[in-house]
Design a protein around this nucleic acid. Structure first.
Lengths: 167, 167
DNA sequence: ATAAACTTTCAGAAATTATTGAAAGTTCAA
DNA sequence: TTGAACTTTCAATAATTTCTGAAAGTTTAT
């Protein structure tokens, strides 16, 4: 297989993976392209290669910078902005997880904590089940949250330890 | 807070969590409703409570049964079908993860394995970066895959061990 | 065999999400 | 201060996903 073809297959596959786990397809594809780029890349390079608009490219790059996995890179003498991605998966994967966890799991944990205070004053079966389920789910989610924080914390060796321990 | 209100808040919150991590909102809400239900529940009960159509209800229940977290429950003397959910989060959470991992991560792993075979015959920088990145991502993903399999395998105590170990 | 009770399907409608591209904004050299 | 080069925004449009509801299918009692 040609490198060119292989790159395209990789980029497409990465886009699909993103889609099914809640990352916008273009965002995932831009990251894939940057991962494979040996040199800093401009907005126009991305537009051309992925055939997406300037707006979409800009938004995708911004999201990746928000995740902290892509940086601006100035090239001396060039007016244009260039971008590079963090290339070490041990660094970028935890960063993406950490941001998503904070954005999408933490708010739910807050609600659960609030709902845990609800009392079954009327002594109904519904009330009993509610109290039990919320307690159970809150406890479980808190543990997941704590594990995620440890695994995703910067320069933590926890991820490597996890792999050593479980594989 | 009234139990009724609290239930609604829980159901809504659960729907939102689902949405942001790739589970259809209705599916997540149906599960939430079933989790809180002390008795088996009919399609009509779900339609009424969540204000969704028969078709949507049926499809959501099917997905939950595919995940293996909801079962049909016959009530003697009743013609209608009733449904109950697995109530133990230590059982249902790993089941959902296992199915999703198989559906959405395994195919990507296959592609990565295939792309790992690509050679940098032209000796370009692009080729070198491609080979390096694919190798790195494949290795990382394989580990994630193996950890996920252990954590999600039925009646495995790995999840509890993980929590003990890391929290 | 019939019909009532119930479940499933699926084409179209609705809602949501992603994308475009042109206009507005910014920066900088001259 | 001007305008060329570049970036960002955002209203409109497109694409995708979800949802509806009526029709078709199935099961069961008589």
């Amino acid at each position: 297989m040609e490198i060119q073809t292989a790159q395209e297959k990789f980029i497409e596959t990465w886009g699909n993976l993103g889609s099914s786990w809640g990352i916008n397809k273009s965002v995932a594809q831009v990251q894939a392209f940057l991962l494979l780029a040996p040199e800093p890349v401009s907005t126009d390079d991305i537009m051309e290669r992925l055939r997406i608009s300037r707006g979409n490219t800009n938004m995708s790059l911004r999201q990746l910078m928000d995740f902290g996995v892509v940086y601006k890179k100035n090239i001396p003498g060039e007016r244009k902005e260039y971008f590079v991605s963090e290339k070490d998966i041990w660094k970028w994967a935890p960063k993406i997880m950490a941001v998503r966890k904070q954005r999408e799991l933490n708010p739910i944990l807050e609600v659960l904590t609030e709902l845990k205070e609800v009392q079954n004053t009327a002594q109904t079966k519904e009330g009993a089940m509610f109290v039990q389920q919320v307690k159970e789910i809150e406890a479980f989610s808190s543990k997941v949250s704590k594990v995620a924080d440890k695994l995703c914390s910067p320069k933590s060796e926890m991820l490597r330890k996890l792999f050593k321990f479980f594989v």
